[in-house]
Simulated assay, not measured.
Amino acid sequence: MSLLRVSRLDVSLGSKKVLNGIELEATSGEFIGLIGPNGAGKSTLLKSILGLVPSSGEILLDGKASGQLSAVQRARIAAYLPQDREIGWAISVERLVMLGRMPHKSAFAATDAKDALIAEEAIRRMDIEAFRNRSALELSGGEKARVLIARALAQQAPLLLADEPTAGLDPAHQIGLMQSFAGLAEDGSTVIASTHDLALAARWCTRLVLLHGGRILADGEPANVLTRENLRRVFGVEVYLETTQQGLIVQPVAMTGENNG
């Protein structure tokens, strides 16, 4: 059974149709990158899966209709990292990460040693040990991103949805995050992340979904999606492509001058 199945998904925001007839299925062990230009519908697709924007069509999470799940039931299946990295609580980084365990606890139940171990592993993965005792309100933008990603990792949901997770991170932490996501997929989780970084997507994702004009233009292995023709048509760029032992290298080198809208 698929962990996620989206069928005939349409989304309109105001008078604008943002997604049109989306068909998407994701199974355990996949690291899927959502790529496409600004306005293609990447963020809207992630929000639709979690019922955060009105939509029509069918969305199944672990075989159950997403709209019929409670917030806690949905959180046990899917963790979500939005683009917005704002933190509104004056609590320690360690405590914020521990909040990722809440969907697995009954009402008023305290966290236990197992929760602490899971949170500790998330803290280690995101390299935030050095400021674990600081207030989350004192962090830089990049530090906030890593802490919120750690909280999502601590949630240990089988499906992780991340909207531009590498934004604001330095190159080392971008690579470290993508390695972590790839590791989660290798361990059986499903990760779906939107990104504008074609190089990172090509190197780490097992599958890419290319959105253009609210529709899926291409879906498959990175080498089959990141073709020169697709990148000219969608992004209006010429690219350097090379397959190496480390994977596909993608580097935009010039604008084509074509209208990619």
Rank of each mutant, 00 (worst) to 15 (best):
P158F: 06
P158G: 09
P158S: 06
L159Y: 07
L159H: 08
L159G: 05
L160A: 10
L160C: 05
A162V: 10
D163N: 14
E164T: 11
E164D: 11
E164C: 11
P165V: 05
P165I: 06
A167V: 13
G168K: 09
G168C: 12
D170C: 05
D170A: 12
D170W: 12
P171G: 09
A172I: 04
H173G: 02
H173C: 03
Q174T: 10
Q174L: 07
I175W: 04
I175Y: 08
I175N: 08
G176H: 06
G176C: 00
L177I: 06
M178V: 03
M178R: 05
Q179P: 08
F181M: 03
F181I: 02
A182I: 03
G183S: 13
G183T: 04
G183A: 10
G183F: 02
L184R: 15
L184Y: 04
A185I: 00
E186K: 15
D187P: 03
S189T: 05
T190S: 12
T190P: 08
I192F: 00
I192E: 00
A193H: 00
A193N: 01
A193S: 04
S194V: 01
S194W: 03
T195M: 01
T195G: 03
H196V: 07
H196F: 07
D197A: 06
D197H: 07
L198K: 03
A199H: 14
L200E: 04
A202I: 02
A202K: 03
R203E: 01
R203A: 05
R203F: 03
R203T: 09
R203H: 10
C205Q: 02
C205P: 01
T206A: 11
R207K: 14
R207W: 08
R207T: 12
L208T: 01
L208E: 00
V209R: 00
V209P: 00
L210V: 13
L210K: 04
L211N: 03
L211W: 02
L211Q: 07
H212C: 04
H212S: 12
G214Y: 01
R215T: 08
R215N: 09
L217K: 15
L217C: 10
L217V: 05
D219F: 01
E221S: 13
E221F: 06
E221W: 09
P222C: 05
N224L: 05
V225A: 11
L226Q: 08
R228H: 13
R228I: 14
E229D: 14
N230A: 15
L231Q: 07
R232Q: 15
R232F: 10
R232M: 14
R233Y: 11
V234L: 11
V234M: 07
V234R: 07
V234I: 12
E238V: 03
V239D: 08
V239C: 14
Y240H: 15
L241Q: 10
E242N: 11
T243A: 15
T244H: 13
T244S: 14
T244Q: 11
T244P: 14
Q245W: 12
Q245V: 13
Q245C: 12
G247F: 05
L248S: 09
L248H: 10
L248M: 11
L248I: 10
L248R: 06
I249R: 12
I249N: 13
V250N: 08
Q251K: 15
Q251I: 13
P252A: 08
A254Y: 10
A254Q: 13
A254T: 10
